[in-house]
C-alpha cells in the first residue's frame, strides 16, 4: 500500500452520478428542442442560445470569482432554459440582461446552487417580461420557416410576423394541433415543438432525474381546466384541453422548469400538489388575466410555496402505525 488508508462512515461506495453529470443530462435533454428551434428560426435562434448560455456562465464566474467557466454546469442550464423562453430574435442586450438577472438575482444572492428559492431562468424571464414587454410578449412573433438554416443562413426571421396561438381564439383556431406537436408555430424558442420537448423529457425520465408527478399534475390540470373552462373551440372540449397543453409554454414549463430540482418539493405528495398548483394558476392567468401566458408566474408562485408544501407533506415513515383516536 502506498498512501494512508481512508476512514469514512458507511456506505463506502457511491453512485457515479454527480451534480455536473445531472446538469449535462439536462443540457442533453434540451438538445432536441434546441435543434428544432434552430431549424425553424435559423441562425438568430442559435445566436440567442449561445449568448444566453455564455453570459449566464460568465455571470456566475464573475460573482463567484472563479476561472472554471463551466463549473458544475448549472449556469449553462439556466442560460439555455432562459433562451428557451425568449422570442427567436430578441436584441442581444436583452438576452445578456436576462442571463445576468437570472444568475445573480435568481440564484447567487440566495447562496448559489441548491439554495435558491425560485427557478433562476424564470426569474430572469419574469424581469424581462415586466421590463420589456414589447420585446418579450408582444402580439407579433416571427413566423417559423422550417430548415431556414440550410436554405438561407442569414435570413432575418423577424421580417414576417404573426401572433402566437395563445393571443386569442381566432389565432388558436388558425393553429392545428399537429402544428403544435411538430413545432411549426410562432412562439418562444422552447415553445415550438411539443414532440421535441417530450423526447428530451423522456431522456431525463429514463435517467431518473424527473418524476412523473410534477409534469403529470401540471399537464393534467391544464388539460382538465382547459377542457372545462377553455370555451370548447375546435368543436370539442377535449381538443380544447389538448390545445391548452400543447400551445405556449406549458410543456416546456411542466417538463423542464417546474421539475427544476432545487425549487420544487422533495416529497412525492408535495410534487403532485406543486404540479397541480402550477396548472391551476397557469390556467387562471391564461383564461382571466391580462397576460396571454401564465407559466412563468405560476411556477414562480409555486416555487415560493415549496417550503410550505414540503413541510406539510413529510411522508409517513415505513411501518408507521396510524394513530387511533
Amino acid at each position: 500500500m502506498n498512501g494512508k488508508l481512508v476512514i469514512s462512515s458507511s456506505p463506502h461506495i457511491r453512485t457515479i452520478e454527480s451534480v455536473q453529470s445531472v446538469m449535462i443530462d439536462v443540457l442533453a435533454a434540451l438538445f432536441p428542442v434546441a435543434l428544432i428551434a434552430v431549424l425553424l428560426f435559423g441562425y438568430q435562434a442559435l445566436l440567442t442560445m449561445v449568448i444566453a448560455v455564455i453570459s449566464a456562465m460568465l455571470a456566475e464566474a464573475i460573482w463567484m470569482r472563479k476561472l472554471d467557466i463551466f463549473g458544475d454546469g448549472s449556469a449553462a442550464v439556466t442560460g439555455l432554459l432562459l433562451a428557451m423562453t425568449l422570442p427567436p430574435a430578441p436584441p442581444w442586450w436583452l438576452v445578456v440582461v436576462g442571463s445576468f438577472c437570472a444568475i445573480i438575482i435568481g440564484k447567487q444572492v440566495f447562496g448559489g446552487i441548491g439554495n435558491n428559492i425560485f427557478n433562476p431562468a424564470l426569474v430572469g424571464r419574469a424581469i424581462l417580461v415586466v421590463s420589456w414587454g414589447g420585446h418579450m410578449a408582444g402580439q407579433i412573433w416571427p413566423v417559423p420557416k422550417p430548415f431556414v438554416i440550410f436554405s438561407d443562413f442569414f435570413y432575418d426571421i423577424s421580417a414576417v410576423t404573426t401572433a402566437t396561438p395563445l393571443a386569442g381564439q381566432e389565432q388558436a383556431l388558425n393553429t392545428s394541433l399537429s402544428q403544435l406537436l411538430f413545432g411549426n408555430v410562432a412562439g418562444a424558442l422552447g415553445e415550438t415543438s411539443a414532440l421535441a420537448l417530450l423526447v428530451g423529457a423522456g431522456w431525463l425520465f429514463i435517467k431518473g432525474h424527473i418524476d412523473w408527478r410534477i409534469p403529470g399534475g401540471y399537464i393534467g390540470t391544464v388539460f382538465v381546466m382547459g377542457a372545462a373552462l377553455g370555451g370548447g373551440f375546435y368543436g370539442n372540449h377535449l381538443l380544447t384541453g389538448l390545445f391548452h397543453v400543447l400551445a405556449g409554454g406549458v410543456l416546456l414549463g411542466a417538463l423542464f422548469m417546474a421539475t427544476d430540482m432545487v425549487t420544487s418539493p422533495v416529497t412525492n405528495l408535495g410534487k403532485l400538489i406543486f404540479g397541480i398548483g402550477c396548472g391551476v394558476i397557469t390556467m387562471l392567468i391564461r383564461l382571466y388575466g391580462s397576460f396571454p401566458e401564465g407559466v412563468t408566474f405560476a411556477i414562480l408562485i409555486m416555487n415560493a410555496l415549496t417550503p410550505i408544501i414540503d413541510n406539510f407533506t413529510i411522508p409517513r415513515k415505513f411501518g408507521e402505525v396510524k394513530k387511533s383516536a
Binding site: 498512501g3 494512508k4 488508508l5 481512508v6 476512514i7 469514512s8 462512515s9
Partner: peptide, 9 residues
C-alpha cells in the same frame, strides 16, 4: 503525523 485519511463530515 496523521494515522489515516478521514473522509466524512
Amino acid at each position: 503525523k496523521d494515522l489515516f485519511v478521514y473522509d466524512g463530515i
